[in-house]
Design a protein around this nucleic acid. Structure first.
Lengths: 126, 126
DNA sequence: GCTTGACTTAGAGTTAACTCTAAGTGTTAA
DNA sequence: TTAACACTTAGAGTTAACTCTAAGTCAAGC
């Protein structure tokens, strides 16, 4: 698969794919006449990376995880711990977002009500 | 309330509070001998801002919302629409995070299993 | 009266994660 | 065989959101 195809498949720019390689998040991509040929292994990793990035994991954490994968046997416990940390961070993130959604719903409701019974000039937080 | 107290109450730096003022996110903070005196109105806004920032709303959106609040009557519909947009964005965000958590749980489970029945040298994504 | 410490300002510097530019190569179609 | 096009590289530029620096003011305590 070429860089263009990968970029379209995962909806990330070619620049981003090259950037990920430059910083060592994606490694050992084969070339044919200097042109990148992504294979199964890379595709699986890229899918994971894209998903985790969309959730907000840092590139740094992902590099660490990929390095453990490359070191192979004996790093399983460390990998598991890293993933647990990231999952816990995401769960905390979810709570923050939930809290904000609650607040937003309350305010949206407030506007819904005053917009119904215009011309009540009451207003939130002023 | 001084900048120090506000900073401690909401757990954001004094620099950040000054920065928010500089860019127009917080406005009209009273001074006594040049020193900021935050009042109820500001505190309510800061609480909202901190909560929304923690969920990932952009400063830009928050400035827009605060500007509508300051313009007052007649902007209620616009405010409501802005809040609905942001809420919807957050809900999309939640789904992405949920997807990532699912994937992480799957992998954590995988490591849990292979770590139990060592020395099975199987490994995910290699 | 002098030091200490919390505050002030304007503006420069930092960080993460891209995104763009310029100059060049190699394959494909007319 | 020349033009078009997709790719390559190194490195510079961008963006959002801070964070830090330097130089200065002011009230309180010794």
């Amino acid at each position: 698969m070429t860089i263009k195809e990968v970029s379209e498949k995962f909806n990330i720019s070619q620049d981003t794919l090259r950037y990920y390689e430059k910083i060592g998040l994606i490694k050992d991509v084969k070339r044919k006449n200097g042109i990148r040929q992504y294979e199964e292994k890379e595709l699986a990793r890229i899918e994971f990376i894209v998903c985790m990035r969309s959730a907000g994991l840092s590139i740094d954490s992902l590099i660490k995880y990929m390095n453990l994968l490359d070191r192979g046997d004996g790093t399983e416990l460390e990998r598991k711990q890293l993933l647990i940390n990231e999952r816990d961070r995401l769960m905390k993130r979810m709570e923050e977002i939930n809290g904000a959604i609650d607040k937003l719903n309350y305010k949206i409701d407030f506007y819904e009500k005053i917009l119904l019974k215009e011309p009540n000039k009451n207003s939130d937080m002023r």
